[in-house]
């Protein structure tokens, strides 16, 4: 069903996991929430590679440093907190964030704007048109966690014959569930004196952005099969491009083995759209011998 024994190339999902993992600092407390297997994978991968002292708190179970044998398709499952060193309670986890002790949180949205604001609550401003599942504790953690990584595997516009194309990276969110660098009434985030500094990375399946001094998303990386023009055509807002624009780094064969052992059922691939299931990237440093 897949090429997961082939170590000469990585899947789009694996490239995304690697990019998300690059944002995780060693020694911090990071939390993956629920419904986010790519992030789950990135945290477990980081812990097993460059961030061995990471305090990995599993979403929904609140287990600390678990070593699950496999990923389950729902996150509040005992399979996900096996091997945990200890567990936190819901209030403890959120208190740690509120008091400035959560290093990083990972958030997404059906709409993401130029300031890294995210909507997971509803489409439609005055009248609700589409009810989204809601953000769990994301709204709180977007304010409290020291830094945020935003990710989406659905940057590519959704074309439909009847309606105009639906963007994921939008001019403005219908509802701001998770706070980026500007408030709903256009104030600067830093004026609110929140605990957290806001998003510093936006990883999508088309490119990678950081946020410039004004808090605006800025393109810093493209994929081997994307470029600035492609990314612009799928982004409703205009964005600056870094002078040091590069092509994303890819994991090496040893790293791929680590990732593939984490998720034997391939739960994380559910985040990847059908059109992207066959996107692979050749590892340039691959050495058969």
């Amino acid at each position: 069903m897949n090429n997961l024994t082939d170590l000469s190339k990585c899947t789009l999902a694996e490239a995304l996991i690697f990019q998300i993992a690059q944002t995780i600092e060693d020694g911090i407390l990071a939390f993956h929430g629920f419904g986010s297997p790519l992030v789950q994978m990135a945290l477990h991968f980081a812990k097993r590679t460059h961030a061995p002292n990471l305090i990995l708190v599993a979403g929904a179970t609140y287990g600390v440093n678990p070593t699950p044998d496999f990923l389950t398709p729902t996150s509040n499952d005992w399979a996900m907190d096996r091997g945990s060193e200890c567990s936190l309670s819901i209030e403890e986890l959120f208190d740690l964030a509120a008091s400035g002790r959560m290093g990083r949180m990972f958030l997404s949205g059906l709409q993401i704007d130029r300031w890294g604001n995210m909507n997971v609550t509803q489409l439609g401003r005055d009248k609700l048109k589409l009810k989204l599942p809601g953000g769990g504790g994301g709204c709180n953690l977007s304010c409290d966690a020291n830094r945020l990584t935003i990710w989406t595997a659905a940057h590519h516009i959704q074309a439909s014959p009847k309606q105009k194309p639906r963007f994921r990276l939008v001019e403005s969110c219908d509802f701001i569930t998770n706070l980026g660098h500007r408030t709903v009434d256009n104030r600067l985030r830093q004026d609110l004196k929140l605990q957290g500094l806001g998003p510093d990375r936006l990883v999508t399946e088309l490119g990678v952005f950081d946020f410039d001094e004004s808090g605006h998303a800025r393109l810093i990386k493209v994929y081997p099969d994307t470029d600035v023009d492609i990314i612009r055509s799928h982004t409703e807002f205009d964005f600056p491009v870094s002078d040091q624009l590069t092509v994303i780094e890819l994991p090496d064969a040893t790293m791929l083995k680590i990732m593939r052992n984490l998720d034997p059922m391939g739960v994380h691939r559910k985040e990847i759209r059908a059109q992207d299931k066959n996107r692979f990237f050749l590892l340039d440093s691959y050495d058969e011998w």
Partner: peptide, 28 residues
Amino acid sequence: CCYTLVQQLRATISGIPFMPMRSIQGTS
């Protein structure tokens, strides 16, 4: 959202009419 709920429940548990918090500011 989760922490808002936690704080609201804590207010009741402590017999206080409200709880303060930093987050939610700036959001819808």
